[in-house]
Nucleic acid binder design. Structure first.
Length: 232
DNA sequence: CCAGACGTTGTT
DNA sequence: GTCTGG
DNA sequence: CCAGACGTTGTT
DNA sequence: GTCTGG
């Protein structure tokens, strides 16, 4: 769950909502973001502050010999992340906010094999703040660390349940500072913040199957799906 | 002790 | 079927 | 997440 | 790095 999302906010809106400045190094408008790609995240760098960075989606634990493990660590179950060897250090000390304005799920395939993607966004139009964990991994013999992250999942709420049994952890603005605070490590409180979003928070609608290919990263992926009986 | 895993999703 | 690339 | 590859040798 | 399985 949560293997594709979008982030096409106006930089001014990012500034007013999160209080951070984003330049071209850490932010470009994206409609179809996939694992393995560089993504905009917020973290408390320096500690106590708030900075936007460009991190690669798919977490590589610090002990990894090979970064290919990232393919399997695109999501982390929030119920167990505090204990799992791959995530527990990051859960205590390296949490981040993954900036987004929508995310996607796919239903079962149609008769022709196509899967129609569903887009979820906030009904109030506000940015979506996905809860994430980040890591720094330095390849042997290299000086430059690879910065990676994963997105936490939780049980689906009523909006999501028709489509999937998991959903990304969504953070409210009141909890941003506590979530990214690397000095805060009260696991009970942190786990409270990973509970499913309220049932009325999100809207759902079908979008274009052009979204299925990561090569399509433009506003038209948000269009309604083409009628399956149409030859246009 | 060493060797090998360390994860999620969905599907069966 | 399973892994890689995006 | 989905789409697309999944292999070797030798020759250009 | 740290835990589990043998």
């Amino acid at each position: 769950m949560c293997g594709r999302y979008s982030l096409a906010l106006d930089p001014d809106d990012i500034m007013s909502h999160y209080g951070v400045i984003v330049d071209g190094v850490v932010y470009t408008r994206r409609y179809n973001i996939a694992p393995g790609q560089q993504c905009t995240v917020l973290l408390d760098d320096p500690p106590g502050g708030r900075t936007a960075g460009s991190f690669r989606w798919g977490l590589v634990p610090s002990w990894a010999k090979d970064p290919s493990i990232a393919n399997k660590l695109v999501n982390a179950r929030s119920e167990t992340a505090a204990e799992k060897p791959s995530f527990r250090d990051a859960f205590r000390k390296r949490r981040c906010i993954v900036l987004a304005d929508g995310f996607y799920e796919w239903g079962k395939a149609m008769m022709d094999g196509r899967k129609i993607p569903i887009r979820f966004e906030r009904r109030d139009g506000a940015p979506l703040s996905l809860a994430g964990l980040w890591e720094s991994w330095t390849p042997q013999g290299s000086a430059t660390p690879l910065l990676t992250f994963t997105i936490l999942t939780t049980a689906a709420n009523d909006t999501m349940r028709p489509y999937h049994h998991r959903m990304p952890v969504l953070l409210e603005p009141a909890n941003y500072t506590q979530w990214i605070d690397s000095a805060f490590n009260n696991v009970d409180r942190l786990m409270e913040l990973t509970t499913p979003a309220p049932n009325d928070l999100l809207s759902a609608r079908e979008v274009s199957t052009r979204l299925n290919s990561v090569a399509n990263d433009d506003p038209s992926v948000l269009d309604p799906p083409r009628d399956e009986n149409s030859f246009l």
